[in-house]
């Protein structure tokens, strides 16, 4: 046995150093993958909200676009959900890098894959009206209401109004068909 090996083994014995149990490493891997799956699901949900809001606002969007009224158009962009999507995508990216072979892949590939998976799952969610139901639930919270721009421009650009109260005039109401 070499001098260094002997020194190390004596140090291990003296300090009572033990092998970390296998379950700790398995638990860490499970945690990383679970966090990644949750991030992708949440990302898909926020992307589905973007799709939902852009879809139902489309007639209003087109009308303003034809009239070359760009300020109202900017107010129709779902900034909140876009920001949430970007944050979740960033989290998913760094989480994926912690997986066993995550470091081997190019960042652009990881990000593009995350966006693609998010869009695919979001499309499925939209098809089952999940964002509509989510919007209904979220509208009950005052904080969420305050985050949305007023879509009824007759009240002026600064006025805030919960989106679902007046379905008839609400450009973000989910189409009945």
């Amino acid at each position: 046995m070499s001098k260094l090996a002997d020194k190390i083994l004596k140090k291990v014995k003296k300090a009572n150093i033990k092998h970390k149990p296998r379950w700790q490493f398995i638990a860490k891997r499970i945690f990383i993958w679970s966090a990644l799956i949750v991030a992708i699901i949440l990302l898909s949900m926020s992307v589905s909200m973007i799709i939902h809001q852009m879809t139902v606002a489309k007639p209003v969007f087109s009308e303003h676009f034809q009239k070359r009224e760009f300020s109202p158009i900017f107010k129709l962009v779902p900034y909140f959900w876009t920001l949430i999507s970007l944050l979740l995508l960033t989290f998913a990216y760094f989480d994926f890098k912690q997986t066993k072979t995550g470091h081997r892949h190019r960042p652009t590939i990881i990000v593009a894959s995350g966006i693609l998976v998010g869009i695919i799952i979001a499309a499925v969610m939209v098809s089952v009206r999940a964002p509509h139901n989510m919007e209904e639930q979220l509208q009950r919270h005052p904080l969420y209401q305050k985050m949305h721009f007023d879509k009824d421009f007759s009240k002026g650009p600064g006025a805030l109004r919960p989106l679902m109260k007046s379905q008839a005039n609400n450009p973000l109401a989910f189409p009945k068909n």
Binding site: L4, I8, K11, V12, I17, K18, H19, K20, P21, R22, Q24, F25, K100
Partner: peptide, 12 residues
């Protein structure tokens, strides 16, 4: 080597 010893179960 002490780190290696501690983390042997984590070697993939």
């Amino acid at each position: 080597f002490i780190k290696v010893y501690e983390n042997l179960n984590g070697y993939d």
